[in-house]
């Protein structure tokens, strides 16, 4: 009788430990997956910020660079396309086009010293650089957290929990060309 009770207690204890371990592992995985989601949201936030900056930039440049109508129109068009793009593939394609158009605009601006001395333009330029950087860093953070999450769910012992609760590997934010990942090389000097 006593032996049976002892066995039951030991069994119960082991079970309890396993359950606790299982729960904490599950919570870890959820936390990691949320980090991935947050990082993805951050990319979106920064891309939106870039879209918001562009009309201001175009307005400012328009006042000085009167002969660059076509370049400016390209930027505006690329922005409109990026704003309305749906889906990861289309969006990254549109952003890439927008980055290219912005890069060309910044090259053209080099020829207008008055514009380059404009405080408003300089502030916008700093904002744009920073936003490009932020897009890059957000993407980097996203990929880092995806890597962490994927490594976790593919390795023992977390893979048991991941398999049971259907955690699947997330996709990396791959960029087709250097241009987008590097966040356009805009020369600002």
């Amino acid at each position: 009788m006593a032996t049976l009770l002892l066995a039951a207690v030991v069994f119960g204890g082991v079970l309890l430990v396993i359950v606790i371990w299982f729960v904490s592992m599950y919570n870890d995985l959820v936390a990691l997956r949320n980090m991935v989601k947050n990082a993805w949201a951050q990319i979106d936030v920064q891309l939106k910020r870039r879209h918001d900056l562009i009309p201001n930039l175009v307005e400012t440049v328009k006042g000085y660079a009167t002969h660059e109508k076509e370049t400016l129109e390209n930027v505006t068009r690329a922005r409109a396309a990026a704003v309305s793009a749906e889906g990861v593939g289309a969006q990254s394609q549109a952003e890439q086009t927008l980055s290219g158009a912005l890069g060309r605009l910044m090259l053209v601006v080099e020829a207008y010293p008055d514009l380059k001395a404009n405080q408003n333009f300089l502030a916008l330029q700093e904002e744009l650089t920073s936003t490009e950087n932020k897009v890059g860093f957000a993407r980097q953070a996203y990929n880092d957290s995806v890597m962490r999450f994927n490594t976790k769910i593919q390795t023992v012992p977390a893979n048991i929990v991941a398999g049971a609760f259907n955690f699947t590997a997330e996709e990396f934010f791959e960029v087709q060309e250097e241009a987008v990942r590097e966040a356009p090389k805009v020369s600002f000097s």
Partner: peptide, 12 residues
């Protein structure tokens, strides 16, 4: 401010 923003994002 921008640089701090950028690093906040990078460090999550």
């Amino acid at each position: 401010g921008n640089v701090v923003d950028e690093m906040t994002i990078a460090a999550q």
